[in-house]
């Protein structure tokens, strides 16, 4: 009894600083951002500016500026004291430990890939966002070139897949569909990912962006809803492009031998019927995901007309039609050949 109470007190006392930090955080954030969120601070140095729209959609926003920057005095910035910066590993010990073990930790630190004031969870980013992080050091055309040595359609793969699907150890991948729009200036053959603004006019008033496709609002996308979306003339300029995202984030950046084998992705195993996800662009550049009905990515016409992975998302009915065409071709030699054999004496007589 007293032991339990002891634990309870321990727990509460551990929670208090967090709770007060959260409360204070909100207040301090607005004071900090009253300078650091204003564009005029750019004059003092671009590194001092924090984009409030981006910051406010992060989880870090909830822990507050001073959780990471202690030592900001009331006289800041006039006091000339440089506030501290928390080290990521103080709070992300597990990720840090994992990353330290990978050889990549010698090449890049946490803040080379993550801006502390604009962090996003995996579910809120697109594959394109991730590859932009990597492209800071791994020049895109150089990557395409080095991968083309062994990877057919390297440009397509590098465009369509996040690097981490091949270079981190998540055992499972999730087919994720992104909304794309026609755009003359994009690298993607005139197609770019669509943002919230591109879809704003299609969102029913007062509803979330998911309702653009999820018309019945049940929080999931069915094949019928996809069909309606794909055949609607309203959305002629919007298409769904697919990619494979890792199911979980790992920080063991490495070369994985099994990704060298195309059938890791290009063979329809038990996963072919998997549910997939649709990523809707949100304001502030993040994404929200919605589950898509099982098997929809295999539908020939109306599921995902612009997403196909050779060998993996093939349609069974169509495969059978093709085999029947071949079989009917084979019947000619078989039937004619049999009759020919049976009547061979008639031709010899001649």
């Amino acid at each position: 009894m007293s032991r339990t109470r002891g634990y309870l007190i321990l727990l509460l006392s551990a929670l208090i600083p967090v709770m007060t930090a959260a409360a204070v955080g909100a207040a301090e954030r607005s004071t900090c951002l009253s300078c650091h969120g204003e564009r005029k601070i750019l004059n003092k140095g671009t590194h001092l500016y924090i984009d409030p729209a981006k910051y406010e959609s992060t989880t870090h926003e909830r822990i507050g500026c001073v959780a990471c920057h202690t030592g900001v005095t009331p006289r800041h910035p006039a006091d000339g004291v440089r506030p501290s910066r928390a080290k990521c590993e103080e709070c992300h010990a597990a990720v840090y430990a994992e990353y330290e073990k990978s050889s990549h930790s010698a090449y890049a630190g946490c803040t080379d890939c993550h801006k502390p004031h604009a962090v996003k969870p995996l579910l809120a980013v697109s594959g394109r966002d991730i590859n932009i992080q990597c492209a800071k050091c791994h020049d895109n055309s150089a990557t395409v070139k080095s991968h083309a040595k062994w990877l057919p359609q390297a440009a397509l793969h590098i465009d369509a897949l996040p690097c981490i699907t091949c270079h981190t150890g998540s055992k499972e991948t999730v087919i994720t569909l992104y909304m794309a729009k026609r755009a003359g200036d994009s690298r993607l053959g005139g197609v770019a990912l669509a943002g919230y603004e591109d879809l704003r006019s299609f969102i029913p008033p007062g509803k979330k962006i998911g309702r653009v496709i999820d018309s019945n609002g049940d929080g999931a996308v069915s094949l019928d809803e996809l069909k309606a979306f794909n055949t609607s003339s309203q959305f002629k300029h919007i298409s769904l492009l697919g990619t494979m995202m890792p199911e979980v984030v790992t920080h063991s950046f490495q070369i994985l031998a099994n990704r060298w084998d195309c059938t890791f992705c290009h063979a329809s195993g038990p996963n072919a019927q998997q549910t997939s996800q649709l990523a809707f662009p949100e304001q502030g550049g993040t994404y929200s995901r919605m589950i898509v009905e099982k098997g929809a990515i295999l539908d020939i016409l109306y599921g995902t007309p612009d997403f196909y992975m050779t060998g993996f998302t093939r349609n069974k009915t169509l495969s059978i039609i093709g085999i029947l065409i071949v079989a009917s071709g084979l019947m000619v030699p078989i039937l004619h050949g049999t009759l020919r054999f049976l009547t061979r004496s008639r031709r010899k007589e001649r």
């Binding site: 397509l156 197609v191 016409l301 007309p305 349609n315």
Partner: peptide, 20 residues
């Protein structure tokens, strides 16, 4: 040439139509 011709492929009915 899917990547450079993506917009054309979408215009003729999508990559699935093309593949099938």
């Amino acid at each position: 040439n899917i990547a450079p011709l993506r917009a054309w492929i979408i215009a003729i009915g999508g990559i699935k139509f093309l593949v099938d």
